[in-house]
Design a protein around this nucleic acid. Structure first.
Lengths: 195, 195
DNA sequence: ACGCTATCTTGTCAATGGCAAGATATGCTG
DNA sequence: CAGCATATCTTGCCATTGACAAGATAGCGT
């Protein structure tokens, strides 16, 4: 693959990869289009044609992220069927695709009205809520709509853990992010559920 | 207060306030030192003297944020004594001091080695863990060090909820952030504890 | 009264994002 | 295969920005 068609081959992909690498290294704030162009060996204005804009590039990156996250969650749900492991998969995606994940939740960096982005975001949301819907109904203490609250709680817990881990705010540990996340997520699931 | 000493009066404070306002509006990425200077009515190089650097300014902002958060948590613990309300206070701080909160967890934006910053961060950490220490010991299902896990879970939950709320990712609701956070945090606390 | 220092200004430079105009290669059509 | 249309990329340019250096100004202590 990646035959040398056109001048570069697959510049769009190369730029997205370079952006992910750069963001993982130094954060989204330090990202420079011209630097990406240099890394890819093209002129400083080449990225414009593919993404139009700096926010445009990050829109593409976020879209890719939501799609990948949706796939990871769906696969975990299919293979394990465990609600807890769904949370672990969420954290695992965040830690293994740091750049994508960081951009995804920073709407001020990209074009929130992009159609492909909205579709991908919805994919991810569906994958998430599919797991919540698996939960036994009388799950929480109170009755009624507590499934919605339980889903929000689990999402918040996984998301918060991932965020804190990525920002380096969590106390040092020798555990992998997976293991640590599992132990913490159990605090929410172990009270009522199996798995 | 704010007597017109020197040329401006209290430029440092004015710049921090302007920065908080600008970040709350458009996010940290769009922040411009020169724009802050214009808002404060001073020359474009004036901020340099007070903060040295753009990361320097954000270091000051983050430090202020950690101090304020520590105070808010400590007061909530003193007045309510409730672990749940501590989480609510965390979310309330995030939503009412959006700019500070966003910068605090973005170490790539400021000078992580700053002494004042480290002190303030530790203050906040202490205030948080003081609340965790209040928890009854046989709190969770398993034995032993589960208090640490419970603390991490609560922190992650509150932090994740706050982050998702700020990024606009949560489904629309008519509740205030406080109410919504309380309902979600209860998912973690209602199983074993009172309050 | 005198100097000292913190505060702020003016001037400058390299780097960046974005735009416009042009060059080049690829693919399509007949 | 010839010729045109289009996607891809380049060169050149401009306003803005962060950072630095050097100078001006104002309040303070002695």
């Amino acid at each position: 693959m990646a035959k040398e068609r056109y001048h570069h081959g697959d510049l769009r992909r190369a730029l997205l990869d370079a952006a992910a690498a750069a963001i993982a290294e130094s954060g989204p704030a330090a990202l420079s289009l011209r630097d990406l162009a240099r890394r890819a060996g093209v002129s400083h204005a080449a990225p414009t044609h593919h993404f139009g804009d700096k926010p445009g590039l990050l829109t593409a990156l976020a879209t890719e992220g939501f799609t990948q996250l949706a796939a990871a969650l769906a696969e975990t749900r299919a293979t394990t069927g465990s609600f807890l492991e769904l949370g672990v998969a969420y954290v695992r995606y965040a830690t293994t695709h740091r750049a994508h994940f960081e951009v995804m939740w920073r709407p001020d960096l990209y074009h929130g009205d992009d159609a492909a982005l909205a579709a991908a975001r919805e994919q991810a949301g569906d994958a998430l809520y599919a797991g919540v819907a698996d939960l036994p109904d009388g799950h929480a203490g109170a009755g009624g709509e507590s499934v919605r609250e339980a889903g929000l709680a689990a999402w918040s817990l996984a998301h918060g853990f991932a965020t804190l881990w990525l920002s380096g705010s969590l106390p040092q540990t020798s555990e992998t992010p997976d293991e640590a996340a599992r132990a913490v997520l159990r605090q929410l699931t172990d009270r009522t559920d199996r798995t």
